[in-house]
Nucleic acid binder design. Structure first.
Lengths: 187, 187
DNA sequence: CCCTCATGTATACACTCGTAGACATAACTT
DNA sequence: AAGTTATGTCTACGAGTGTATACATGAGGG
């Protein structure tokens, strides 16, 4: 029985947003309800709608917040392929339990409304950033292809749970992924 | 007003199964209900449970049936990379509307029960087949990696709807994908 | 022809969903 | 200290979920 938190609009709003990031990332847009998100934040379901308009409105802000901070991409073009490969393998390890935007995307994409929000967020944040770091010819397509590889690997390893990928030697996975990213980002 | 179809257990069961393939592939496991599937098949929701035990039971048979017939993979090792790349780009074209097992996987994976069924189906059918066609060292891992690339590309192009990938030159996409698959399957 | 069983339907239950409207209370202003 | 407004909760509604039980009906065998 914790003391009833002082009334603070911005703090409450932030708590709901963080609970939304966690809930949507772990269970996907259709896999969690506003009541459960609100309970994690310690408030009532209706406050979600008051601060974010609707479940969809909260999801849009969650996508925005989740894609804003970088988790996988580095800024150094020279070591981009290797760093990306290493970070990808590390963050998709069987016991890793991070709240990555890719998990948010993979688990929420089946809902058409969520997919549209995700598409906008990806093109605004992620593709643009890859393009900054590796501005080659046909850069946008290659950035999108690199994202495809990242998303596919993430899906198979963490959402599907492929035993082949989870039982593989991690150093070998990093080497293979580095080859793929080098091909895509430094043609 | 069609004539009320003659009573035929196997035909009805097959109709439900085909409606299940269509429904689960288009909307994902959580995105469609048994009533809608039953209506597509022209029967009542309860018949789904009578013939398949439950929604989850129907999904398991849908996965089995959908992964049984090959849509993307060819059998000739020599042209595997190119054929795979070409088929992938063709079947993920913006106006293509096929019922591919990859769409079934991408849209149903967020549900944990569905993910487990999918994982088993993938390892039974798809990975094994890739391994047959391209038996290299570390074959299982490389087959799984190739599947990751296919799944990621499918996700970005058809589920997310990346404008970069959908606006790109298709021949260029095929060339890039062929390079990736060659790297993975003919190291 | 009629009886029987397989095939299909109708109803209902217990639950969850997103969200709307009315109400309560804490905190700041005057 | 009193009033006002922002902040949060309670109740409820209409719709949809998967599925269990009871009932209806058509088709084949005696």
């Amino acid at each position: 029985m914790t003391a009833p938190r002082r009334r603070d609009a911005v703090a409450t709003r932030d708590a709901i947003l963080r609970a939304g990031v966690e809930g949507f990332t772990r269970h996907g847009y259709d896999g969690i309800g506003v009541r459960e998100i609100a309970q994690t934040a310690g408030v009532t379901a209706m406050l979600v709608n008051r601060y974010f308009g609707s479940k969809e409105g909260l999801f849009a802000e969650v996508v925005e917040a989740s894609m804003a901070d970088r988790t996988v991409l580095t800024d150094d073009p020279a070591t981009l392929a290797r760093d990306l490969a290493a970070a990808l393998v590390r963050r998709t390890a069987p016991h890793a339990d991070d709240l990555d935007p890719f998990l948010l995307m993979l688990r929420s994409a089946p809902n058409p409304r969520a997919a549209e929000i995700l598409r906008a967020g990806i093109e605004k944040h992620v593709e643009a950033h890859v393009l900054d770091v590796a501005p080659e010819s046909r850069g946008t397509e290659r950035a999108a292809m690199a994202l495809s590889v990242v998303a596919g690997f993430w899906l198979m390893r963490k959402v599907i749970g492929s035993t082949s990928l989870n039982g593989a030697d991690e150093a070998a996975l990093v080497r293979t992924l580095e080859q793929l990213f080098t091909l895509l980002l430094h043609p």
